[in-house]
Each structure stands twice: as structure tokens, then as C-alpha cells.
Design a protein around this nucleic acid. Structure first.
Length: 104
DNA sequence: GCAGTGACCGTGA
DNA sequence: CTCACGGCCACTG
């Protein structure tokens, strides 16, 4: 609470299935236009106990995080595809179709 | 208690 | 157009 991480987790938790958000976008939403790194670190913490779908967070290119290879190659991609997220031949998420836009 | 690092982004030259 | 650097917060050693 009262921490940047909690702010990030709160937003990520609001991301509906089939949608993805970028680090920079989340950083802006928490009031840290230049704090994209904080979002990345917050994801690294990725407390499953907090119910944070960190697999729905990708970089600005829509590329999945290599850190997910911890569970196996292409783990994050598999999770997103299971939710109906379309991927480009380059292996990136089609942000034009699945970029999460906070209504309010 | 101090310093360095980290799943990144944006701007300047 | 491309290359390079700074900046933000929290956690670890």
C-alpha cells in the first residue's frame, strides 16, 4: 500500500483477459512517465499471491519477457494465446488489437 | 547504512 | 535517419 508497486499491481489486476499493457503505459498511469523500470521491477516481483497476471504485461514492442522462460520456452506467449491474444510472425503481441486501454 | 542493480521508456544530439 | 544516455522506485548484498 502507498507504494508504486501496489499501484502497478492494481492496474495489472484490472487488465481483462485477451488484453495486454505495456510498461510505459502502466508507468504513465501510476504517475511515473519515466518510471517504466519500476513497472519492470514490480513485474519481476510478480507476487502470484497478489493475483497479478504479469504475463499480460509486455514491452512497448509487444515482445514477451525472456524471464518467463523460467517455466519453459514460450510460456508467456502460450498464456496470452490461450486468452485469445493474436501474435505477429515476429513473435510480438499485436498491440493494435489487444493493447489494454483503461476506460477510466 | 551504503551502493548497485533491474522483465524499460523517452528525449537529445 | 541512428546512437547514446538519463531517470524513476524498490529490493539485495
Amino acid at each position: 500500500m502507498s507504494g508504486v508497486f501496489e499501484q502497478v499491481y492494481a492496474l495489472v489486476r484490472q487488465i481483462p483477459p485477451g488484453k495486454v499493457a505495456t510498461y510505459g503505459q502502466l508507468a504513465h498511469l501510476i504517475g511515473r512517465p519515466r518510471g517504466a523500470r519500476l513497472v519492470g521491477y514490480a513485474m519481476s516481483a510478480c507476487p502470484s499471491s497478489a493475483g497479478v497476471p504479469c504475463h499480460r504485461v509486455v514491452n512497448r514492442f509487444g515482445g514477451t519477457t525472456a524471464a518467463f522462460d523460467t517455466f519453459g520456452p514460450g510460456t508467456q506467449r502460450a498464456l496470452l494465446e490461450a486468452e485469445g491474444v493474436a501474435f505477429t510472425p515476429e513473435g510480438c503481441v499485436d498491440l493494435s488489437l489487444h493493447l489494454w486501454q483503461p476506460l477510466f
